[in-house]
Nucleic acid binder design. Sequence first.
DNA 1: TCTGGGGTCCTAGGACCC
DNA 2: TCTGGGGTCCTAGGACCC
Length: 424
Amino acid sequence: MSKLFALVDCNNFYASCERLFAPQLIGRPVVVLSNNDGCIIARSNEAKALGIAMGAPYFKCEKLLKARGVEVFSSNYALYGDISSRVMSLLGQLEPEMEVYSIDEAFLHLTAMAGGTLTDYGRELRRTVRRWTGIPVSIGIGPTKTLAKVAGHLAKKNEALQGVFDITSADVDEILGRFPVAEVWGIGRRLAERLTLCGVTTALDLKNCGDGWLRKKLSITGLRTAMELRGVPCLTLENCPVSRKSIASSKSFGYQVESLTELKEALATYIEQAAVRLRGQHLLANSLEISLTTNRFSKTAAHYSGRAVVTLPEATASTTVLIRHALPALSGLYRPGLCYQKAGVVLFGLVPETFYQANLFRPRDQKGGALMAALDQINARWGRATIQHGAAGFAKPWKNRQEQKSPAYTTSWQELPVVKASLP
DNA sequence: TCTGGGGTCCTAGGACCC
DNA sequence: TCTGGGGTCCTAGGACCC
């Protein structure tokens, strides 16, 4: 028997994390906001039931949320990241063949069962994750990743399934015939629109399209999706972590920024953040791209979006070097008089530290590495930006809003939850 | 006043080379 | 009069995911 895929998906993950340390939230509607408190990016079931849309701008539904008594949180990635790694490491212990697909999803290869059904086994997995981490999950099982995703959808939506659905135990075509094509993994809004115009509205329609037509209309990725719906695995379990191709840091400002000085501070700050991650993964960057944009929703001003690529003289992980090369490029993108909303940096051309290729015409800077290592150690111990580059500014008035953030319960000594117990 | 951030992959077209 | 063909690399843009 060939191996099956199981998709383990944490239910309403961010909202579930907030509830872990605030049990009074259980049963209440909870939403989590994106960075800058901009949009709604996670909703508890109770919030979904109130008709609160995914991605809705916060300022447009703030009143409704208040009126309905919805608990609102700014995103707390320190917390979500830590809880995620607990869930993933537990899953890895239970099923060694695992791919961590995202912060709240993992694919597993299920090995053959000795007695009992896969559904029973899935329920056992689910109970264990719940008991050990406090996080509720849904599990979809299928012969391909795409079918496991379909099964996962149903497991989450249909209460009677108790969180687990094995699509191989059902009539697949009957299920796909009722499954909207727009909800198929890999079919986004644009492709769904295009497919609908051609009369392809369900996953079953997509499955039955001709290969040539799919290839032409949706490219190789669309053809792969259709094959996967037919039960032919095209995507494998990626269980050894591949090295990153890029590391990005970009953020919206708390207000519209006009001055080049402030933009430079913001960009230097984002470079510091990206570079910490670069060093954490023992990589060097060969080039970087910076970007600067105005508000794309503005009805009064034309949208401006500039980007520039800088090739570095040699691969580096030094924040100082990265900042030194990026800031002049920023001046080149700057148009006086515009109000900017967002800036960012992407580091790419990443190579492992050990692959460092010397520049023929200049000696390697040996001190930089030790300096950065010391910087990272200090900041890891005493908090981000305990020591930082002057270029990144101090007051940082442009910083975005995060007004309703919960404590980093599990990753900061200062913010540990306090438990008070008294003897009877 | 206020609309996220960080990734990946694919394709088309142009530059360039021999 | 009449100006090739095949290959590679790079970039921008579009699409998707969570």
